[in-house]
Computed example of a mutant assay.
Amino acid sequence: MGLDATAALLQRLLAWGLMPLWLLAGFGDWLCHRAQRIEDSAGTRESLLHWLMLLEMGSALAAALLLELNAGVLALLLVLCAAHELTTWWDLRFAYPRRRIPPVEQWFHALQFSLPWVGFVSLALIHRGQAAALLGRGEAADWTFRLKAQPLPLEYVWAVAVAGTLLVALPFAEETLRCRRAAAKAAQRSRLREAVRAAR
């Protein structure tokens, strides 16, 4: 299999294998949070950490879909993947003492940890010249951020955007709303208890 054929195969695997699996893993993670009722344990703070991870990976996804994959964009993707890894560690360190993390949720986490790196390495292999340029080897590094000269099919970009909204963004918005409502109810109950004690 030649070089061009290898790159084409990797692109198909990214588009029709990794991408759907990654989005479904995000939805599965939300289902686990809902079943665990995180609004009654880790609450809003954990939900906000989820949004930070979504911002990191959403930015990486938008860059990979829309921008020319050169040294500058690959460096950005590397930074965002590393930031996501650190935020994930922060999230788990916060959540673990406050709630149970069952095996099925850990399995979804494993997908969410690994798939961004698989995507990054695959893109680096497809664009190996600019990946090598990051290390100061081969061709000159291109650090500019610009739209793809040959854009991905608009239907595909829109399909990813809609699927990401329906499977990830909206569910996690519901999670944050649920956590805030639970926090408001808990605060109201606390104020009521304080009022009852003061009246005695």
Rank of each mutant, 00 (worst) to 15 (best):
F113Y: 11
R137K: 11
V104K: 03
A25V: 00
A60M: 14
G136M: 07
P97A: 08
G43H: 02
L52K: 03
A195L: 14
G28F: 05
F172R: 00
R45Y: 15
D29P: 06
E139F: 01
V79G: 02
F94M: 10
R37V: 11
L49Y: 15
H127Q: 05
E155C: 02
G138K: 04
D142S: 06
L3N: 12
E105R: 10
W22K: 03
A42Y: 01
M57R: 08
L170E: 00
L154T: 05
A42H: 05
P153H: 11
M19H: 03
E46P: 04
L152M: 14
A132N: 03
A75G: 13
G26M: 00
W30D: 00
L167I: 06
T144Q: 14
L54W: 05
D142A: 07
A195F: 03
M19W: 09
L69N: 04
H127L: 04
A195Y: 03
L77W: 06
A124Q: 08
V73P: 04
L170F: 02
R128N: 12
L115A: 06
L52H: 02
I126Q: 12
L13M: 09
P151C: 02
A182M: 05
C81M: 02
A161I: 07
L167F: 03
A132S: 05
R93C: 10
F172N: 03
L31K: 05
R12T: 15
C81W: 07
G26Y: 00
C32G: 12
